[in-house]
Simulated scan of single mutants.
Amino acid sequence: MRHILNGRLFGRNMNILKLFFLIAFFCSTDSLSAADIPGSRDSPLLKRFAGSEIIGYQAKSFDEYELQTSTFVRYNLESKRREFAKPPLKPEGRLTRIWYEAAGDTGSLEVYRNYLDELRSKGFVILYDSRKDPAATKWTNYLAPFGSIDLTTNRSNYVFYAAEKSAICVASAKKKRPEGDVYVYLTVVEWGKDDRVYKARRGAYAALDIIETRPMQQKMVTVTADEMSQAIVSTGRVSLYGIYFDTNRSEIKPSSKPALGEIAKLMKKQPALKLHVVGHTDNIGGYAFNIALSKRRADAVVGALQKEYGIAAGRLTANGVAYLAPVAPNTTEAGRAKNRRVELVPG
């Protein structure tokens, strides 16, 4: 009887032990996944290096990126920009930035070569490889200033910038796709020991920037006739982003009809109102080109209002000022998008 009871107790204890180990296993699995910072995730385009965790993450639906494809030449102190043997590419689209930490005995070269193999296996063509650039060791101090990047991280923003310069590896790559090309910029660095200042652990760190090219979607809300009237009274002008043109073109796109209709409604409500229609551009292409383009676009708006909505010619005057009246810096695509607009100013 005692043997039977002991057997039952032993069996029950074994079941308890199994349950304990299962709980421990799942808890350990959760703790591994929980090592990634909240809100971060791998890109579906590329795998991560085994054993690494995400320590920094940023995702933007649309941005411009400067992609290195040749050796570094010099740093321009006046413009505060890096200069290369070939002008860098400037793809625009969805930008995802992921910082990985592979702590322990992992070196930067191992991580770097694994990523290059992963890129090639996914159909990417390597555009630049610092390991094949004899001059690369001379410009490691001019690594992209990671500290200026506003991204969520549980390490110092300077964890890449201040790492061991001799172990830095940099590569850029491109993959062609029907839905839009993809570009990758990879930077891998190495820390020889733990560092409390930069919250760095000994091991390798990989920064993966992925740019999925696509045109910016127009999301500006159409300004109503009443809102135009209020803006003119309060500020003396109204900025419109609902009138669309293709790049470097002055033909009005069909999607502009709602905005044109509201302008016509405003002028019919106020028969005495006269307006200057002012075209504004960004600074891409130079002044002479943009002053002509902005005037042609203003002419197109005036012509459409006269022809399609019956607004008298004497009530509208077309003007173009190129990029002489920016409302945002022209150094980023987001700023340039704000500067590309049509303004209405009472005559």
Rank of each mutant, 00 (worst) to 15 (best):
L5T: 09
N6E: 12
N6G: 08
N6M: 08
G11L: 11
N15F: 11
N15S: 11
N15W: 15
L19V: 12
I23E: 05
I23T: 11
T29D: 11
S31F: 15
S33V: 14
A34G: 13
G39W: 03
R41V: 07
R41F: 04
D42A: 11
L45M: 10
F49I: 00
S52C: 06
Q58Y: 07
A59H: 14
K60G: 04
D63Y: 14
E66A: 08
L67P: 02
S70T: 03
Y75T: 01
L77I: 07
R82N: 09
E83S: 05
E83T: 05
P87S: 11
P87G: 09
K90R: 14
I98C: 02
W99C: 00
Y100N: 01
D105V: 09
G107D: 15
L109Y: 06
E110W: 07
V111I: 09
Y112F: 15
R113C: 03
R113D: 05
N114L: 06
D117A: 12
E118C: 06
L119Q: 00
I126R: 02
K132N: 12
W139S: 09
S148K: 14
D150N: 13
N154S: 12
N154G: 07
S156Y: 09
A162C: 14
K165L: 14
V170Y: 08
V170W: 06
A171P: 02
G180D: 02
V184H: 00
W191Q: 01
K193D: 10
D194V: 08
R196V: 11
Y198P: 03
R202G: 03
R202A: 07
G203T: 01
G203I: 01
A204Q: 02
Y205A: 03
A206M: 10
M220E: 15
V223P: 00
D226I: 10
M228K: 01
Q230P: 04
T235W: 06
Y241W: 15
D246K: 12
S256N: 04
P258A: 09
A259H: 05
I263L: 05
K265L: 09
M267Y: 00
M267I: 05
K268G: 07
V277G: 00
V278M: 05
G279L: 01
I284Q: 12
G285S: 09
G286D: 06
D299E: 13
V301P: 04
K307Y: 08
E308N: 15
I311T: 08
I311G: 03
G314I: 08
T317A: 10
A328T: 06
P329L: 08
P329Q: 08
R336K: 14
R336A: 13
R336E: 12
R341S: 06
R341A: 05
V342M: 14
P346V: 03
